[in-house]
């Protein structure tokens, strides 16, 4: 349990922070000043306490250990060898399903992923888009990880086999072999890949710089190499689901083994994959490209959240000249 605690994302914000934010807006500088002082004092206090406090940890073999919080943050099991990481988990075909009708665009999946992989905030291995395909159609949220395609364009073009397709369907990047040509980034039609343009920041190097590297963990990252969503294979080896799946509070994301014909969401609801896809008219992104993604989407029918606000996207488009797939903007 405690392992999971560290691995996963901290979903819930502490209420004191939220309350502080509210007051700031409500009652002006004096009160806000007090809150800030109070809050920071509280924070210092909490930090001290947390650092020193010992926690009981239940290991997988049922033994109880005691450890401080800092130690737990750094816990990672020893990675598998490179050869093993390239082979994959035998007799598995991992698959992910997004139920768009449940997604409210909270981006908790992104946060969970970023925490898990120590990524900086601009690198969203799983990114939540606000989509609006046509004017008459309803807008919806679209979380997009790497699709781990069965006909992966990125892997085809890699000149040195640094990105590879595994037996279990996962496409990984070996950043100890990558030469940084960025051909895979150009080839990926889903813009899934990110490049380490500069040295990883110093905080990160201090935290994870000395960990043994395996393509399965994607960290420590290295300058001049490509990275992307990896379906958390190190978690899968422990029998746990990827960070984004467990981090989703809306139970949007289902994950499982296609060979078992079952996918499970964060609440532990397991459904029969084939039936689930069939009954909900599942589809894949840009099917016409023939990339054969391993990620399915259930259409955003009967949504359980208010429709996305398109104003932000429109504004962003105007200011930064972003272009999306909105056909209504086309004139010819």
């Amino acid at each position: 349990m405690a392992e999971e605690n560290n691995k996963n994302e901290n979903n819930a914000g502490t209420p004191s922070e939220n309350a502080g934010r509210r007051n700031f807006l409500k009652y002006g500088a004096l009160t806000a000043g007090l809150t800030l002082v109070g809050g920071s004092l509280l924070k210092v206090f909490a930090d001290n306490k947390e650092q020193g406090e010992k926690m009981k940890v239940l290991s997988s073999d049922g033994k109880v250990y005691e450890a401080t919080c800092n130690q737990l943050q750094e816990f990672r099991p020893a990675p598998v060898s490179n050869a093993e990481a390239r082979k994959g988990i035998p007799n598995k075909k991992f698959v992910m399903v997004f139920d768009l009708s449940k997604c409210d665009g909270c981006k908790k999946c992104t946060e969970a992923c970023q925490k898990m992989h120590y990524t900086e905030s601009d690198r969203e291995w799983i990114k939540v888009f606000t989509m609006h395909d046509a004017k008459a159609e309803a807008p919806y949220y679209l979380p997009k990880p790497c699709f781990h395609c069965d006909n992966p364009t990125c892997t085809k073009v890699c000149p040195v086999n640094a990105t590879f397709k595994r037996e279990d369907g996962i496409v990984l990047v070996d950043n100890e072999r990558c030469i940084g040509c960025r051909m895979c980034m150009a080839a990926c039609p889903y813009s899934t890949r990110f490049f380490n343009w500069s040295h990883p920041n110093s905080d990160q190097t201090a935290a994870i710089g000395n960990l043994p590297y395996s393509p399965e963990q994607s960290v420590p990252r290295r300058m001049g190499t490509v990275e992307k969503c990896d379906f958390c294979p190190d978690m899968l080896r422990q029998g746990k689901m990827p960070a984004c799946v467990t981090g989703c509070p809306m139970d949007v994301i289902y994950f499982g083994d296609q060979n078992e014909d079952a996918v499970t969401n964060a609440s532990g609801v397991t459904v029969k994959l084939s039936q689930f896809l069939e009954q909900n008219a599942a589809y894949r992104q840009l099917e016409e490209l023939g990339t054969e993604p391993r990620v399915y989407y259930l259409p955003p029918k009967n949504r359980k959240y208010p429709a996305p606000d398109l104003k932000n996207i429109e504004k962003e488009k105007k200011e930064k000249k972003h272009i999306d797939m909105d056909m209504s903007s086309m004139q010819m």
Binding site: K92, K240, F255, A262, T264, G268, V269, T270
Partner: peptide, 11 residues
């Protein structure tokens, strides 16, 4: 009655 799957139990 369930069937044990990789990440959960399926009815």
């Amino acid at each position: 009655f369930y069937v044990q799957r990789l990440f959960g139990i399926m009815p």
